[in-house]
Design a protein around this nucleic acid. Structure first.
Lengths: 186, 186
DNA sequence: AAAAAATAGCTAACGGTGTTAGCAAAGGTA
DNA sequence: TACCTTTGCTAACACCGTTAGCTATTTTTT
């Protein structure tokens, strides 16, 4: 039942967007009355929270695979960036929910730890790259945030249709180039 | 009246956030009944749209000043970045509305031209810097988006409390450093 | 088997939202 | 005086998240 509610909610979001997701629509879709939902979730936010957790888990699974596949930190970082990008555009509903794009933020505090999930993964890779170089901790920390920022920023801009580059492979190329340049200057 | 509605709405948002802004609260605040609002605005979205336009105008005014003040494109770019950053954190309500951070997107299409406002300003500065160097148009375009992305991404991350750097001057320093490094490698 | 308790599910409501139809009073114009 | 436009209102509609309280049904206990 719980699982059913979550998967139906996700499907509704994929079909009609976060804006139009409502408890009543979920109830209709699972063919139960409204209060049944509240037997399994405290409120709507709890449903959104759970879904966003699914999103973080989905992303993390790929990052974890990368970590095993790429011992070279530079290749690892590229793979992480690629994974982040393609996660965002293969699962825009998840990405929007997880990072509050164009929708009311879900967990406001509760999700906080998970929000740093990606930062931690790229942090590790970047630390691997800068290890031999003489960088202070602050510098490294800054670079991690800069790297995350450019990825998240670009994804946000493209996803919100701020970019007037229509071609999605072109947008991907912007990312690839930027990531390339960033790594070169680490 | 129209102006009054807008300013009251903005004040409500500053006090209680976008989430809790409602037509009825606006009506209460201006001490008129609800339908009066609809004599001046087609719907709630039209109010949000107008407010976001105010935001874009406010930002653009500073960028325009920068353009007159800094003939040197490198200094201009830095000033633009600084202006964008401080606009975002002095007017978080505006920034959230304009770029759909943690709230339903307002104009979804109607605002589109304005969304590129900042990109155009930094684009001009970056073109000024890159002019002497031999860069293709594509490369320049990519750099513009990369620069905008890192700024928007960092602002989003900090504003959504994804960053665990609490100190706001520290966050600012991340931006300054990143901008500095970016310009150096243009 | 009968009584009690727990469970599953529902209807109907409360207070909130955006939005609109339709009415009443006031003021200006012929 | 009669008409028309403006200004503002009340009251409703359909939707939202949420909850109180009621039926059945099933399980457990006596």
């Amino acid at each position: 039942m719980r699982t059913n509610i979550l998967s139906v909610a996700l499907q509704l979001v994929k079909d009609e967007g976060w804006q139009s997701l409502s408890i009543r629509k979920i109830a209709d879709a699972i063919e139960y009355s409204v209060p049944v939902i509240y037997d399994h979730f405290e409120n709507k936010e709890a449903i959104l929270f759970e879904l966003s957790m699914d999103g973080f888990r989905l992303l993390e699974r790929t990052l974890e695979k990368n970590k095993k596949k790429y011992p070279n930190p530079e290749q690892l970082l590229k793979a992480h960036a690629e994974a982040y990008w393609s996660f965002a555009f293969k699962n825009p509903e998840y990405y929007q929910l997880m990072y509050g794009l164009g929708m009311p933020c879900s967990g406001t505090g509760k999700v906080k730890p998970q929000l740093n999930c990606f930062r931690d993964y790229i942090g590790q890779a970047i630390e691997g790259i800068v290890k031999e170089k003489k960088s202070t901790d602050d510098e490294t920390c800054f670079k991690i945030y800069a790297f995350w920022s450019v990825l998240h920023g670009l994804i946000s801009i493209v996803m919100m249709r701020c970019s007037d580059i229509d071609d999605s492979t072109m947008n991907k190329k912007v990312m690839d180039d930027t990531v390339e340049a960033f790594i070169k200057n680490l």
